[in-house]
Write a protein that binds this DNA or RNA. Structure first.
Lengths: 210, 210
DNA sequence: CTATCATTGTGAAAGAATTCACAAAGATAT
DNA sequence: ATATCTTTGTGAATTCTTTCACAATGATAG
């Protein structure tokens, strides 16, 4: 399949959220324009995004909410649950472990690792914090789909190599460095301080919103 | 000044981080290529990004690390500290309140608000959780620069209107909805579940990393 | 059954962002 | 000094993304 832009995939994910919201409210059909307004984009953008994957609407009527939601879930690979390992049991890691949003959307945190002896052995949300040294063995026994890295910047690349070695193909990285990975491994970066810095830039240059 | 792309600003923020790292290691000069490699981009991209703001390098030599870092900080508006109010004292909010990364980079959380009577009055990291109803009065007395919204989706727009009314011009939004704001207010969205969903898309379509 | 209205799907156009490629400037070695 | 090497800054070319605009399709009202 043709390469789909990251920005398109993100929007699909948003559309799905809106579709589920409409579904919950019992709305049966929705137009590209309604989706667009809810997502802060244009109806042409919505239709173009969908068109990369097929044609799902009815002219004159719009899209069947339930049907489109199902299609979106299938495109996004959300028809199954994902096993997630969390590496790094610091402040942010702790919040993620407890955050219900992940589980709600099909992502189950099934293992937590850290290097700090003070944390190893403690239980978090009923999961034991394991020694990161045991990560290869643990993942060999119980493989996971996704690793979430919440380590300090200086240990992130090392941990990356270990999880890649363990066969993981998807990493959500909170450490503020660019990870080097083989090209069949997907990495998404989240950098909270960086988001604040783009806001401080905007405050200094007063140019509207994103 | 000419409108600068958001992607450029984000990269500048990354470059600054690398520059500070080089600075810490006592490196005196750096080439666009060195910065590019560290940031997972190209040297032409680095030079183009910088060129929007001026010309800071020496041909044949590169950039003075300290000088460029100072320039970047000034461009990004990081020559000062920012007062931040946190709205929403849930799991993620709690982690952010404790996260040292913000303070380190000049962002001080100075007030926390929530609507839940069970949380109001408790202290978090030595800051009292205040009733969100008192937000307008509190911000009138002690203004802040940035609001971080960590509320449920359904209350986010309401809170937004309150903080906008209070004169805030920058919002970091963790709620999974598109906030409607006047155009002189900057909004940055962070949506963790959405990041995981782009990973699940990638896992299903096996197309390399971001 | 006909006219009108709503809405999709999509090529083509416009607009943005990235990469290329090279002259200009300066560093370094001999 | 001179030749060679390094690296910047930047227009031009390219590639990617978004928006436009409209024919095609079907719904709806009279």
């Amino acid at each position: 399949m043709r390469k789909i832009a990251d920005s398109t995939v993100r929007r699909l994910s948003l559309y799905l959220r809106f579709l589920e919201e409409f579904e919950g409210r019992g709305v049966a059909t929705v137009s590209s324009n309604a989706l667009a307004q809810r997502g802060g984009t244009t109806s042409a953008q919505v239709r173009k995004d969908l068109s990369f994957f097929g044609s799902f609407g009815k002219r004159g009527l719009g899209y069947d909410v339930h049907e489109l939601a199902t299609t979106m879930r299938s495109i996004l690979g959300l028809g199954r649950r994902y096993r997630v390992a969390l590496v790094g049991a610091g402040k942010i890691g702790s919040a993620l472990a407890q955050y219900r949003g992940f589980k709600q959307r099909g992502f189950d945190i099934v293992a937590i690792f850290d290097a700090d002896p003070a944390k190893i052995g403690k239980s978090w949300n009923s999961l034991p914090v394991q020694d990161v040294k045991t990560l290869p063995a643990a993942l060999a026994k119980d493989p996971v789909d996704i690793a979430v890295l919440v380590t300090p910047a200086e240990s992130a690349q090392g941990v990356t190599e270990v999880v890649v070695q363990a066969g993981i193909k998807a990493i959500l990285n909170f450490a503020p460095i660019q990870l080097i990975v083989p090209e069949d491994v997907s990495v998404k970066n989240v950098n909270l301080a960086l988001e604040l810095e783009t806001l401080s830039y905007a405050l200094g240059h007063r140019n509207g919103n994103e």
